[in-house]
Design a protein around this nucleic acid. Structure first.
Lengths: 233, 233
DNA sequence: TATTGTTATTGGTTCAACCAATATACCAAA
DNA sequence: TTTGGTATATTGGTTGAACCAATAACAATA
């Protein structure tokens, strides 16, 4: 099928280039960058364009900018955030498998917790949301995202929602592959029914187990794919 | 004592103002903002200044900007990230307690996991790092941050490191208060010794329990402070 | 030596102009 | 009527130059 073309601003390209320099170690933490005027000239972009890139890098925790002083590289291990990880995934293809493993591991820790909390805290509107999505004619992948979102929301912890956004962002390209496999589709459809039932019933222990099982299942499939680097998930 | 002055760029102030409008519901997801030229004129700042603010808001997942089209408010529940939470904490004082509770809850889930993993994966250089920081003459609060960082690093999952950065960022102002109390200092000093020993020994079960205990202890103290809103932690 | 004032450097902001992508309205061909 | 093209207006993207404001570096002074 057709896949969206990824257009980029000049400032995003500038940002990517600098991220690469930092992640590859060409720019060392503590190091001072040349003045904006000089950097922009060397990169052959306008100073404003560079500045927009710098703002982005600042919010990724990669550098700090001080008026009258200069631009300093920060140690991303001290100040980096999850957003940065997305960029690492896109820019450093060789790290993809390692980072994916880390993300899957975190997901295995958090998702069951989310499900348990959802069963304990769900409200009438959450239950209504489950019924609505299960009865809808949306695609399996859309349903899957929706179900997880309802669970995160029902858990009533805003961090769960944001972390789920992160997972969704990371795995959105993967979903296509994963849901091509018939077995995975069956497992997922069954999961939707069971987790909904458990959360609606307020059965926290079951909700945790059901979530854990499906996460472990998917993790195994994804890891298998990553290690063999073929089209099977 | 004197407390650091929080200087802000104009563009950061512009960003804050827009974040407030979005979080307060004055700007609805899907809504289209007026053209940059118009917004900048109304806010009485230059278009470039506004644009730098927009870049920041974009990376927070609050809006999307499309050349030739316009600026659209996104639903932060679908696209917000943890960075956004920091801004919410600073800008929406009334939500502080709620968000703190959520953060503490997540920390209670993740930190013991980090400690367990650290005990399983620690290397010689991690052990060396423990000895070095324990033998140093740094302040208790500095040691505490360092110990947690060593544990996150030893766990060998880059997400642990970034999530710890997030926690540190959130609690950095709180540390001052927490470490004023004599009992908390004693508990923390004991924790440093015990967790180091467990991780170094590779005793994953103990490491998890030790971390869990201290996290639960601190959480109780902090919640107590938040609910009574006095200076005791 | 320590303090203070001066100057240079550097990021922050503004202004004005033009480029490029998108939407819109309209038209022509099938 | 529908489809595809074309012209135009709208809107974000980029550039250049100038000036403001904070900081650092240095010189002058006590």
């Amino acid at each position: 099928m057709f896949t969206e073309i990824n257009k980029k601003n000049l400032s995003d390209e500038v940002a990517s280039q600098i991220i690469n320099r930092i992640m590859s170690g060409a720019l060392i933490p503590g190091e001072k960058l040349p003045p904006e005027r000089e950097v922009s000239e060397k990169m052959n972009v306008n100073r404003h364009t560079l500045r927009e890139a710098l703002r982005k890098l600042e919010s990724l925790g990669l550098l700090s900018v001080r008026q009258g002083d200069g631009i300093y590289i920060k140690d991303y291990r001290d100040s980096g955030n999850l957003e940065l990880l997305k960029h690492i995934l896109y820019l450093k293809k060789d790290k993809t498998t390692d980072v994916f493993k880390d993300i899957l591991e975190l997901r295995r820790v958090i998702s069951p917790e989310m499900a348990e909390k959802a069963a304990l805290k769900r409200t009438e509107s959450d239950i209504e949301a489950f019924h609505q999505i299960l009865g809808s004619d949306k695609s399996l992948i859309e349903k899957d995202i929706a179900i997880h979102q309802i669970i995160a929301k029902a858990g009533n912890n805003i961090l769960y929602i944001f972390i789920l956004n992160f997972f969704n962002d990371i795995f959105k390209d993967f979903g296509q592959l994963y849901f091509k496999i018939e077995e995975n589709k069956k497992v997922t459809a069954k999961f939707h029914i069971e987790i909904s039932k458990a959360v609606i019933a307020g059965d926290a222990k079951s909700a945790r187990k059901i979530m854990n099982d499906v996460i472990v299942y998917a993790e195994k499939k994804i890891l298998n794919y990553l290690e063999n680097n073929d089209d099977k998930i």
